[in-house]
Structures are given as C-alpha cells and as structure tokens.
Write a protein that binds this DNA or RNA. Structure first.
Lengths: 180, 180
DNA sequence: CTAAGAAAACCGACTGGTCGGTATAGTGAC
DNA sequence: GTCACTATACCGACCAGTCGGTTTTCTTAG
C-alpha cells in the first residue's frame, strides 16, 4: 500500500502548501512547479491553466468533506465533538485543503466561495441530524470556525492558547453543560 | 465638525476597502489610487511605498482596538456580549480594518501577524478582567472569531445564517446559561 | 488687498521586473 | 511510437516604484 503520490497529486499538494503557508500571491506557477519538484512544462502538461489546478483542488476538498461528513453521520453521538476537535488538526488533509481553498475564496474567487458555502451546508445538515437544535449547531460551527480561524492565521507557527487541545477540551466540557 | 477626510485617510480607506472586497492581490497601487480618486503619483506623494501604506493601516488598527478595549473596560458587565455582537458589525471601522489586516496577515506579512496577535492579547486581558474565567474567555473569543470569520468570507455579500443577529442573540443566551 | 515666492499636493509617463501562459526541441522508460 | 516529462525561450499583461513637471495652497512683504 501507500502508493507514492502521482505527479498530479504532488502538484496539487504543492499548490495547497504554498497557499497555506505563503498565501495566494506566492502561489505562482513557477513556485508550485518548484515545490512539486517538476518543471513548469511538467505542470502545464498536467494542468493546462491555473484555473484547472484550482479546480483539482476544489475536487479534492469536495471528496475530503464528503468523507468527513460520512464519518460524522456514522456516529451522531460524537459528531459535534468530532467537528470541533478536528478543526484543531491543522495538518490533516481536510483542514489543509480547507484553509487553502479559503485563501482562494478571500481573493474574490467566486467558485471557491460557492464551494465553501456548500461544504458549510453539508456540515450544518449532519450536525442538525446529530444535535437536533439549530442554535446549538450554529454555536458548534462558530466554535469550529473560530478554532480554524486562529489556527489558519498563524500559518504553521505556534498555535495560540485558544487552540491548545487541552483548552478546547475544557471549552467543550463547558458547552456540554448547556441544556437545550 | 465632520471634517472631510484627508487624502491620506482616503487612501487608507481605499486600501482597506479593496483588501476587504477583492483581496490582497487586487490591492494594487493603481487600484488604490483610483478608488481614492487620486493619481498614482498622488498616492506615492503621501506613501512612498506600499509598505508605508500598510504601516498606516496598522496604525489605524492599533488606534481602533485601543478605543474598543477602552469601551469594554468601561463596562465589564457587558464586555463579553459587546465583544461577540460587535464582531457582527462588519461595517464598523474596527471590523473593516481588522479584516483588512487579516487579509494581509494571510499573505505571510509578518508585521500584520504580530499586530493581530497583540490585539488578541489586549482583548483577552480585558475579557479576563470582566469574566475572570480563562476558558470562558476563550469560548467567547472563539465565538467572536467564528462570527468574524464567517462574515469575512462572504466579503460584503449576504450574511450566512450563523451571523444573523437574532441567531447570535439566541446563542449568547445559550452561553449565558453556562455556570462557571 | 495683493503680488510673489515657497511649500505642499498632485499628475501621468516611464522603467525594471514578475507572472500566466505558450511554444518547442529533446530525453528516457515502456 | 507514445507517455511523461525536462529545459529553455518567449510574449503580453500587469505591477511597484521613479521622476520631471504642474497645480493648488499657504505665507509674507509691500
């Protein structure tokens, strides 16, 4: 198992990586090719344009979110906790991809915005199934977004206190005391 | 009263505005000058470089945050609610400036990152004075960040359900039921 | 009040450099 | 021969920053 990634995957990885750590502006075709260990010609062989590369990134996010939602749906009892704590794991493929697409969305990329909205809808639906209380779902999602926002701000550097796992656990415990 | 803004202020406004609605990449000197109603030469007269313009934006944020913290400190009882609900007002000078600097921070701008961290520290301190419970402060700040993140994603478009003021009020009511 | 000069504010063409994209000749594995 | 590239060169668009010059505003002497 653990088949080595294809060049196309490595190119998407590289795009994701640069978006994550250095922002949209640094994600030039040259930089992406360099990080993937491919020549620029090799990049354009797989992706004829930057938009095609972005589309591949979007497809990746769609897939990862579908998997994530399936995991949550499989165990409704822990869905909310899972949602919040998994926002912490900045290194997971899903979170990485999510942050990368968010970076694109902030550069007024309509397709990225639309995709993120769709993902949010999926998460909202599955959390609603699991929790059955709209405002609590919003609360949980806002917490997840807050964690995610904090984590993404610092890039890959030291995480602020708000996103310390132990702190998050205590916050979850506080939220659990809410009766609804 | 209500003195008309100086050209320098209009240029910072324009920079902020473009960062907010179209992202860092669209915030070119030409675009900024155009939006401010001056020529490129007019811009460079007031700000010799883009970095100088960014520095002016940072100074503006420092000032606005200091004011905000003073407001919260003046009334500890409502500080937490104020913090959360004011995250909603995407059109306020503070939120606008905050989002704009966040956009820069995501483009791996070290100074912007540092400034945002300082602001977070200030808010944390005043919320700690008001609430006296670290985890609750983190909870409140994460909620604020979540709201703020959602609001900033959509640029200036329609706000998602999570950031509907009535929803936020109900969420605040839920959080208020937590005993700590 | 006004003329004149100085300072501040502003204009826009230009330069050097970067980026997305295209093109093309060549290489090694199968 | 085809696939999956490498290496390099090039183009047009765009972008930050420069510079010579112009207009507006302020200041002050008469």
């Amino acid at each position: 198992m653990a088949t080595p990634p294809t060049t196309a995957q490595r190119l998407i990885d590289a795009y994701e990586d640069i978006l994550l750590t250095d922002g949209e502006r640094a994600a030039t075709l040259d930089a992406i090719a360099l990080r993937a260990g491919v020549s620029k010609g090799g990049l354009t062989y797989h992706f004829r344009s930057k938009d095609e590369l972005a589309a591949a990134l979007f497809d990746r996010l769609r897939l990862l979110v579908a998997e994530d939602v399936a995991i949550m749906r499989a165990d409704p009892a822990t869905a909310a906790t899972y949602y919040v704590t998994s926002s912490l794991d900045v290194r997971s493929p899903l979170e990485r991809c999510n942050v990368a697409v968010t970076r694109l969305a902030q550069g007024s990329h309509p397709e990225a915005n639309e995709l993120l909205a769709q993902c949010r809808t999926l998460w909202f639906e599955v959390l609603m199934e699991a929790m059955g209380h709209e405002d609590m779902v919003h609360l949980v999602m806002l917490l997840g977004d807050g964690i995610y926002f904090n984590a993404s701000l610092t890039g890959t550097g030291a995480l602020p206190a708000e996103t310390d796992p132990a702190t998050i656990d205590r916050i979850i415990a506080l939220v659990r005391t809410i009766r609804y």
